[in-house]
């Protein structure tokens, strides 16, 4: 069975589109919890609304991934490296779901409905549950740190493949 040398166009578009979205979301999140400037409210509102887009995109991405054949992992990788690659990819998918879901739940338990671009609002609890708010607020923060770490690992691995091993891994996603 022949494996493609490149990820399909739809997979590449989704990958890079989400990369830009996730980096923007992490940067916005980091800034908006600190800033007292007038744009804070605007960025916070957008951050919450884009969380919906993120959860839709990662779902589409997973479904799309199942439809396509993936390029083969280079043969010269050790079994351990192959396993680490697979594990880090599934960890990324897990975190891409966990981020928007924990973000939504912290708003849900704080009884703060989320306004989505003025189109509609996501429901929240009628009464505040401060205990569960605390759980998901802290979780959202810890997950953001974990996601940043796994992305750093992912980017380092891609650059390692490209510049050190000089294989086809990064090119297959370009």
């Amino acid at each position: 069975m022949n494996k493609p040398t490149q990820f399909s166009l739809s997979m590449r578009v989704l990958h890079w589109g989400m990369a830009a979205l996730v980096m923007s979301m992490l940067a916005a999140g980091l800034l908006m919890i600190r800033s007292l400037d007038p744009w804070q409210l605007t960025i916070m509102t957008l951050h919450k609304a884009f969380g919906i887009i993120a959860v839709v995109l990662v779902t589409v991405r997973l479904l799309n991934r199942m439809r396509h054949k993936l390029p083969a992992v280079p043969n010269d990788l050790s079994a351990l490296q192959k396993k680490a690659a697979t594990a880090s990819h599934w960890l990324l998918y897990g975190l891409l779901f966990a981020m928007p879901i924990s973000g939504y739940l912290m708003q849900y338990f704080a009884a703060r409905p989320i306004e989505v671009f003025g189109w509609f609002r996501l429901p929240a609890a009628l009464q505040v549950d401060i205990y569960n708010y605390a759980v998901f607020r802290e979780l959202h923060g810890w997950l953001a740190i974990a996601l940043t770490g796994v992305i750093a690992l992912h980017v380092s691995a891609a650059l390692h493949h490209h510049f050190i091993r000089k294989d086809n891994v990064l090119k297959s996603m370009l």
């Binding site: 908006m32 919890i33 800033s35 804070q40 409210l41 708010y133 605390a134 607020r137 802290e138």
Partner: peptide, 27 residues
């Protein structure tokens, strides 16, 4: 909706920080 009053717009982040701290402590 909110006006562009800088004091008003500073309130969300400050309230959220106070709320985060005490929610965690209460938990």
């Amino acid at each position: 909706t909110a006006t562009a009053d800088p004091i008003l717009r500073a309130r969300s982040a400050a309230y959220a920080e106070s709320y985060r701290r005490r929610a965690k402590e209460q938990r």
